[in-house]
């Protein structure tokens, strides 16, 4: 396998519905409205619903993250092949049962259409179907890194069955396919990017090198690496080497 090349196959979701179990075809998807696994004792509920960005004037809890759905097919993060879903994205929101919001500095709870700017690199496209995962903690929770990671992990576990089906889908059925190569330009000035990211505590953290693109499982927190600099290739970045925990 050429470790300099990353192929991303994009499957365009035209039809996303709620149903009793997970189902995925090259252009449609069905997901349950709650996790099919036992949720953590600290959680009161996890509710999943589908949202149209063009019609979303309703109240939400603070937006913890916006997550793409992507999975490794061949190789590791940064090379080989990944299958990714387009036309669908995930918003994770969180609070406790009394309305205390899960955030570090400033909350985005309120009306969804007023609290997010769609069509940016970090937010859903206004043509997407949004999978809104709302996690509610019991009121006696402790606001710390472990609790927040558990919440992120819950949404990651909810998404994993989609990745498992996506993983075995044939790239030939993808709507689009992109190939990214690490191209060197000898003789040109050498340029690097330095990205300073959060690494101080609960909802102020980032995770790298999870098993799945934009995933949590096996990820390493930048805090646990004492915030030391690490080098990532452009393809690792494009392949979801980072999961934000901010």
């Amino acid at each position: 396998m050429n470790k300099n090349t990353l192929t991303i196959n994009a499957f365009s979701m035209q039809d996303v519905t709620i149903g009793p179990k997970y189902h995925l075809t090259e252009n449609s998807m069905q997901i349950p409205d709650h996790p099919l696994f036992d949720i953590d004792d600290r959680l009161k509920s996890v509710n999943v619903k589908l949202v149209d960005p063009k019609d979303c004037h309703f109240k939400i809890n603070t937006i913890m993250d916006v997550i793409p759905i992507s999975t490794k097919v061949l190789g590791n993060i940064g090379y080989g092949m990944s299958n990714t879903l387009t036309g669908v994205s995930v918003i994770l929101t969180g609070a406790d049962e009394t309305g205390v919001q899960l955030h570090e500095f400033g909350s985005s709870d309120g009306y969804l259409d007023e609290k997010i700017k769609f069509d940016t690199d970090g937010t859903p496209s206004s043509d997407d179907v949004i999978i809104l995962i709302d996690v509610i903690l019991k009121s006696d929770f402790e606001f710390n890194r472990e609790t927040c990671e558990m919440v992120f992990n819950t949404s990651d576990q909810f998404l994993q069955p989609i990745r498992e089906i996506l993983k075995v889908m044939n790239g030939r059925d993808a709507a689009e396919s992109f190939e990214y190569e690490d191209i060197k330009h000898p003789g040109k000035p050498k340029v690097a990017i330095v990205k300073e990211v959060a690494g101080q505590g609960a909802m102020y953290d980032n995770m790298v090198f999870a098993k799945e693109p934009g995933g949590i499982e096996k990820g390493i927190s930048i805090i646990d690496m004492d915030n030391m600099p690490i080098l990532l290739s452009a393809n690792e970045y494009r392949d979801g080497a980072i999961h934000a925990l901010v």
Partner: peptide, 16 residues
């Protein structure tokens, strides 16, 4: 950008 020889991204945290 073909005018630069891109080396990579250094990700660094912000300790307390």
């Amino acid at each position: 950008d073909p005018d630069v020889d891109f080396q990579g991204v250094i990700l660094v945290g912000t300790p307390q």
